[in-house]
Design a protein around this nucleic acid. Structure first.
Lengths: 197, 197
DNA sequence: GTCTATATTTGGATAGAC
DNA sequence: GTCTATCCAAATATAGAC
């Protein structure tokens, strides 16, 4: 019966992962080093290799961690209503998730680590989110690929500008309702405008 | 009369810069190393320091180089007409510029080099472009800050998605006209739709 | 599993001869 | 200005004792 052992091991792994997120928040994703990580978690660098085979594996675990958080956030929400309000609330949830942890956002949606490629299983989580996302969008009433692409560009653009140029502020997230109305007006989605112009 | 000398020096500097761009196109911005750069240009690493005081100065020169190219591209264009068509042509020129050289786009508009901050004079070039850009937008008819921000998010979103997820293709740039119409419909800018829906 | 010690690599930068 | 030789620092990863 090695469950106690495995459990302890899992706990330490989680501890390392937690410390990795903390370090990355401070010094950026690329600033993570095995030495510092070991110090943060109260070990020496070589000991980390008992838990992760390489630094890349740590990034991969962080990637999976972030994707799981995103999936959980999505799953915790009620099914979005169709039309404008569904789009608004779904997108607001997504953008909040991204803006809340800029480093996580960078790891999941940009490619800031040269040479890092998510493992097959981690990438599977990303695909799973993408499926639920498109399913939501379909229910909301956006099915055309061009419209999906246009909307994804708008959402990532807002998120990116917010994270890059006004971290901690709301200069771009505050435009979300207006973006929804602009898009829905164009796509002729049902519902009344959310913003009052 | 040291013009011949200075000229030769300028030529070598330009050669180094050219090689730097080439290397970055291959291995990414962060992948640039003084050793490889020296080899590429036919020198040894220490010799580079006769032309640039540090690696950071090389990045800075590249940044200035890119900003100048952007300014030249802008200056070469006729004054944009007002309204929808002005927005369309101005934005198309900008996005083309970005997509043509993804590495240059990253250096100018993202922060991919940890610790790199443009020098005062280089940043001045960026400010100069920003001024001409906002002046253009004003002439086009977009003056409200919120609308400017919304449009900037949309443009950078399209550019980013194109560069990141469909390099060499046109999946997102092909949506530009539609984006213009969507935005102008929302902002109630003059002119007829460009796309036929 | 954890440690000390170390190998290995890489890359920026400098000293000093020519 | 360019070179050889070298320094220095950082960082991943491994070997082997305990």
């Amino acid at each position: 019966m090695s469950t106690g052992w495995d459990r302890r091991r899992e706990l330490t792994r989680a501890d390392i992962l937690h410390a990795a997120w903390t370090l990355c928040r401070d010094r950026g994703l690329a600033g993570l080093s095995m030495r510092d990580l070991a110090v943060e978690v109260g070990l020496r660098a070589p000991s980390l290799y008992s838990y992760f085979a390489s630094k890349s594996e740590i990034y991969d675990a962080m990637f999976a961690d972030g994707q799981r958080a995103l999936l959980e956030m999505t799953a915790a929400r009620a099914e979005p209503p169709s039309g404008r309000e569904g789009l608004r609330s779904t997108t607001a949830a997504f953008v909040s998730f991204c803006v809340a942890e800029p480093v996580r956002y960078q790891l999941l949606f940009q490619r800031p680590i040269p040479g890092f490629v998510p493992s097959e299983t981690s990438y599977g989580l990303a695909l799973e989110f993408y499926r639920t996302y498109t399913a939501d969008m379909e229910r909301i009433g956006v099915t055309d690929q061009r419209l999906l692409d246009l909307w994804s560009a708008l959402v990532t653009g807002l998120t990116d500008q917010q994270v890059s140029n006004d971290p901690g502020g709301d200069r771009w997230i505050s435009l979300l309702d207006e973006a929804v109305d602009m898009f829905c007006g164009h796509a002729r989605l049902l519902g009344e405008p959310v913003t009052t112009t």
